[in-house]
Write a protein that binds this DNA or RNA. Structure first.
Lengths: 216, 216
DNA sequence: CCGCATCCGTTTCGATACTG
DNA sequence: CAGTATCGAAACGGATGCGG
């Protein structure tokens, strides 16, 4: 059964929390920021949320107009969840929360999870790709889940899945990418140890990582 | 007993939610945005939160560095809660959430509560005081709780309590002020019915309300 | 496998009563 | 005024089952 409790407070902040304030709700939204995802994708991205909880949140977010549930055309026939227009407008809220947290929160634990979406969000917010250069399209492959990234107007754009052809393909995992964002100089060590594989011009990724602002 | 559960997710958004994602936490922060408040003030502002819950949230927010608990000097001797510097930096998060909610959320119910802080937040975000005019300091009195508002650099500033002398004093309640923000033309009806009492130049308040953007 | 539904122990919430 | 104590209800979290 889905949660329906309310703060019954007329303030816009409280009414917003009525919609996205339940536990895990904003993390589901986070996972949908870069495009549609299947139930199993969300499960892998949020392994510490139980399946019934995921189901409940998706139903509630669907009922309140934040998420759309869509069945893909046969023969694929699978169900995908994606943000509505209104739901995608939560991006500034998540951005503000993430930037606030970075300024004062304790470092993550050793057992913490890190989803592809999370690290790509962080990559997008960290890098400052040189506007004068032409940047090719990058395909990120995390354990067979694909993302597409490209530079538009001086900032990195990311979408889930294959958005057209890519000029280079990067196989890695979220934690290795996180380590490279902290220390871009470890690029060669990551490739030679197999934590990072680049098909195509690896200098593109090297330059992108090097453009990241130093971590606070 | 205070809540200590965690998402155990390395993403900054999740770590932020570990701190302010528990139920009622962000509404407690909202109530502290305009300055220090006592436990009883918070209780009146959030009447639907039980007292033990308020205690738990305040303790957690204190432990994580969002809220400071301070005992006033004798003879007052009362305890007040106020945001730390980091805690006050949650303002953009609450702003973003409130603005997002206004664009898509259902209207409040008939039984909803509306705290002085909530309506003053809305007032502050709605009005566009004319920069060319000199605006006097306004004291708002809601049921013996006082706020001070003044115009600085074209926007309304609000603080809880008495911040220096005020040029006019406005006695009202949150719902009446909300109604006037929706319909500034009802100003005279509000004064003659006693829902609004102004000591001083009432045209100041009239002009301020009239500068509000029409509601979406 | 995917997308849930059901069951069940634990934690948190919410309401009321009570104390220093 | 500023919280505790208590207790039933609800939500969470983990495991398992099940039809497609």
């Amino acid at each position: 059964m889905a949660t329906t409790r309310t703060y019954d407070d007329a303030c816009a902040i409280a009414r917003g929390l009525d919609v996205v304030g339940e536990r895990w709700a904003l993390l589901v939204v986070r996972e949908l920021l870069f495009g549609p995802r299947r139930f199993g994708d969300l499960r892998r991205a949020l392994p510490k949320a139980s399946t019934n909880l995921l189901t409940d949140r998706l139903r509630e977010l669907e009922a309140s107009g934040v998420v759309d549930r869509r069945r893909l055309a046969p023969p694929a026939g699978s169900t995908v969840y994606e943000l509505t227009t209104w739901g995608s407008e939560l991006a500034p809220v998540l951005d503000a929360l993430g930037h606030w947290a970075l300024r004062g929160v304790r470092p993550p634990t050793r057992t913490a999870t890190l989803s592809p979406t999370s690290i790509l969000l962080h990559l997008r917010d960290s890098v400052r790709p040189d506007r004068r250069r032409r940047w090719p399209t990058i395909r990120f492959a995390f354990d067979d889940e694909l993302w597409t990234a490209w530079v538009d107007d001086g900032s990195l754009q990311v979408r889930s899945g294959e958005h057209g052809p890519a000029d280079l393909v990067v196989h890695t995992d979220p934690w290795s990418l996180d380590a490279l964002l902290r220390d871009p100089a470890a690029f060669d060590a990551a490739t030679s140890s197999g934590r990072l594989t680049v098909h195509g011009d690896s200098d593109v990724l090297r330059r992108l990582l090097a453009s990241a602002e130093p971590r606070t």
